[in-house]
């Protein structure tokens, strides 16, 4: 397939997943503020913006409304929900002939409807809807596209974004002044899965392990990395006797093995640092994937006349 199109597909996967992850985090903040009278709104909000999203210069007075403005409705910010959907749709427009019609339409109508929901306050209606739509996109891609390279690029983008997102959230849970593990779990949509898995017994340690190292929970860091690795292997099966010709796969594989074969206690004791490494690995792998698959001529500009 065309490199340019592969690039667009990869980013569709990333942006849709990002919108989903962001919606979960903001929704968790919203709920905890409503349900827990002991919450310090300013502190938790700045935690989300600074600790997880990594924004500098957070105003200590920041509140939920400001979080919603920056992370939900800002179409110019590709980390915000509006921005992610806009970017996903723009990429989809460019890859429109490759996407299934149904997939294009769900992305297109989602963007239009999202704008119809209003931007006054980020309510459950907004945030729940975003999660639903992301699931819809994933489901429609799954059942209407051939499971070929195009589809694999979408999934690859999704897995990398998920590994990155979960790593950021998990890192905050390990901080002394961070949110409780219960909040972290629900930010990742893992609360119920975890409860069932552990039969109701949740400790800080088991929660951290579940989100970072569990092999079966699809949003865990380890599972996401493993999925990304598998996509790369499908895209370029290679039989090198030594080393890897696919740098992206090497980076992800190395990171994944370090987590998987390490003593879990070591990983958990050093969680913020480990999660930072995951984020770095995702960034490096993303670049390597770009170099290998998305290389095309330099972006060209319209000439005056044509415009």
């Amino acid at each position: 397939m065309l490199s340019r199109i592969a690039d667009s597909l990869f980013w569709i996967g990333r942006y849709i997943e990002r919108a989903d992850g962001t919606a979960r985090m903001v929704d968790t903040l919203r709920l905890s503020l409503i349900e827990d009278p002991a919450q310090n709104e300013n502190y938790t909000s700045s935690m989300l913006l600074g600790g997880i999203m990594g924004y500098d210069e957070i105003n200590p007075e920041v509140g939920y409304e400001e979080v919603a403005r920056q992370l939900v409705f800002d179409a110019a910010n590709p980390s915000a929900i509006s921005g992610s959907w806009l970017a996903a749709r723009e990429n989809a427009r460019r890859a429109r002939e490759t996407l299934s019609t149904e997939l294009w339409e769900v992305i297109n109508t989602s963007w239009h409807r999202w704008n119809g929901l209003g931007t006054k306050a980020a309510t459950q209606q907004h945030l729940g809807w975003v999660r639903e739509r992301s699931a819809l996109v994933a489901g429609i891609a799954d059942v209407t596209m051939s499971h070929d390279d195009a589809w694999n690029f979408i999934c690859l983008g999704r897995s990398l974004e998920r590994a990155d997102m979960t790593a950021r959230i998990v890192a905050t849970g390990a901080l002394d002044w961070g949110p409780s593990w219960g909040v972290v779990l629900s930010s990742c949509g893992a609360q119920q899965a975890m409860l069932r898995t552990m039969r109701g017994v949740i400790t800080d340690r088991s929660a951290a392990a579940f989100l970072s190292l569990d092999r079966r929970f699809p949003r865990s860091v380890l599972a996401s990395l493993e999925d990304a690795e598998r996509r790369l292997m499908t895209l370029a099966p290679d039989n090198d006797r030594v080393g890897f010709s696919d740098e992206g796969r090497r980076i992800l594989g190395e990171m994944r093995s370090r987590l998987e074969y390490n003593d879990p206690d070591h990983v958990l004791a050093d969680l913020p640092n480990q999660m930072r490494q995951v984020q770095d690995a995702v960034t490096a792998a993303s670049e390597a994937i770009g170099d290998r698959y998305f290389k095309s001529a330099p972006v060209q500009e319209w000439t005056g006349e044509i415009l």
Binding site: M1, R96, E97, S296, A297, P298
Partner: peptide, 10 residues
């Protein structure tokens, strides 16, 4: 078939 832009071709 593929939809290409000028920069996809060489």
């Amino acid at each position: 078939v593929e939809l290409v832009e000028g920069r996809d071709l060489v």
